[in-house]
Amino acid sequence: MMMNSGQTCSAATRILVPRARLAEAEEAARRAAEAIRVGDPRGDVDMGPVVSRKQFETVQSYIQKGIEEGARLIAGGPGRPEGLERGYYVRPTVFSDVTNDMVIAREEIFGPVACLLAYEDLDEAVAIANDSEYGLAGNVSGVDLELARAVARRIRAGAIYINGGFDFHAPFGGYKKSGNGREWGEYGFHEYLEIKALVGYNPG
């Protein structure tokens, strides 16, 4: 979800993991975040700045809010990455011990900030996933494809990407307060068309 400095409407910002494997997930997330090279986008880096001062300040305020709410920093944090004194660069940040009532879980940060939320069983995971005002996109990852499919069906969002799936023909748009209508592929065409009935065109 750190791609494009996290500025993606479908970014997987809430990462739900089984509580029994939380430590393992934290370690993987920490290593992934720390491996991201942030810097001048004209150079050989993985992540550039966020788009503007306003966006930088918004993301910084969310990171601060996460700390105040009691989420635990696994990687990154407030301020700029080491060695970058100016520019709207944000540290790739991961929080753990995030609960779904926290602001960082409920609002769209639109920056390189990931939240780890623990669940006890899949029913709880689905409940957490669906406890949102939004429903643009979700992801389900797992080695048991049948189980992943079943979980994907239970999530109320316009697109669920199973094990990193990608398809230009799949419609993109949201449930609830997310993206009205659908884009991408054939469904995207319908948004630009009126439907006319010519009744009696083929008299029987």
Binding site: F168, H169, W184, G185, E186, G188, F189, H190, Y192, L193, E194, I195, K196, A197, L198, V199, G200, Y201, N202, P203, G204
Partner: peptide, 26 residues
């Protein structure tokens, strides 16, 4: 390329009983 693929076969018209349903630019 997706738009090109879709356009090649897109059904702008559909016959249903006595009616013809047409899709026209909005």
């Amino acid at each position: 390329t997706t738009a090109i693929e879709v356009l090649r076969n897109f059904a702008f018209e559909e016959a249903r009983g006595p009616s013809l349903i047409v899709k026209e630019p909005i």
